[in-house]
């Protein structure tokens, strides 16, 4: 199997807002490999470092890699800027997507697609694809002309994230609580979107609190993150166990 993402002993710190010149270690040595065709899930209580992991992979400037390695398709990511990582084929679906006034959804996705593919994107063909993808996600067509996430409900923002994923076709999709704040129907739509996206040439790394979304997907591996460390790993059976018992049984794992 082809290795897509390879993380070894990753340590990540974030600048501490309260104390000057001090930083806090959030990830304390993470190992994680994701291969093409796989779906991985990261579970863990609030503040365990799940979002930090996503942001570190995407290269958020606030997070600093203090040790370990981070490779994508055998190439070191740590020196690459966020947009360079995106152009390599990494996509992050944000937990709280930014509102960007004045930039329409269509304009944004077309600009991004051009940047990622390095090709000039033909308007007519693009529009057709966009329309189809929006229909898939049960988004009203008029949203293509609205400003990025401005005035969108929580659920609409999340759908807009999945729309971008479908349009940009990344190799690795990082989904940071894409299902949070969604009602049952919306979860169905989003997980259908993920299902449609996923194939043997790409991979997903999913953070979630809600295990319902996972029922639709064939999860290959589950990692449980607590206090910056992976404390348990296993197959989809782990999801059910945590669903029933919570994280309590893992407290002794450390």
């Amino acid at each position: 199997m082809e290795k897509l993402l390879n993380i070894k002993n990753l340590q990540v710190t974030v600048a501490d807002n309260e104390a000057e010149d001090a930083s806090k270690e959030i990830l304390k040595g993470i190992d994680l490999q994701v291969n093409k065709g796989e779906i991985h899930v990261v579970l863990g209580p609030n503040g365990s470092g799940k979002s930090t992991l996503m942001n570190a992979i995407m290269g958020h400037p606030k997070y600093e890699i203090a040790g370990g390695s981070l490779e994508f398709e055998g190439e070191d990511l740590t020196e690459l800027k966020t947009f360079e990582r995106a152009r390599k084929g990494i996509f992050l679906s944000f937990q709280t997507p930014e509102e960007i006034p004045g930039i329409t959804v269509e304009n944004m996705i077309r600009t991004a697609k051009q940047a990622v593919t390095g090709e000039n994107i033909k308007v007519v063909k693009f529009r057709r694809e966009l329309k189809a993808a929006m229909k898939e996600l049960q988004m009203d067509e008029s949203y293509a002309q609205r400003y990025m996430n401005v005035g969108f409900s929580g659920g609409e923002k999340k759908r807009n994230e999945i729309l971008q994923m479908l349009m940009l076709q990344p190799k690795l999709a990082l989904l940071d609580e894409t299902d949070s704040g969604l009602d049952v129907d919306a979860i169905q739509i989003v997980s259908n979107g993920v299902k449609k996206f996923h194939n043997e040439d790409n991979a997903c790394l999913i953070i979630t609190h809600n295990t319902r979304i996972l029922k639709q997907l064939n999860v290959d591996k589950v990692h449980v993150l607590m206090q910056g460390k992976i404390v348990a790993e296993g197959g989809p059976e782990l999801i059910e166990k945590i669903d029933k018992e919570g994280f309590g049984f893992l407290q002794g794992a450390e």
């Binding site: 958020h60 990582r85 996509f91 960007i100 991004a112 400003y147």
Partner: peptide, 20 residues
Amino acid sequence: FYLMSRGISEDEARSMIVRG
């Protein structure tokens, strides 16, 4: 960061935001 995560360079991201 959001725009950059979509593959748009930092300069372009800034000018997109200003144009917006």
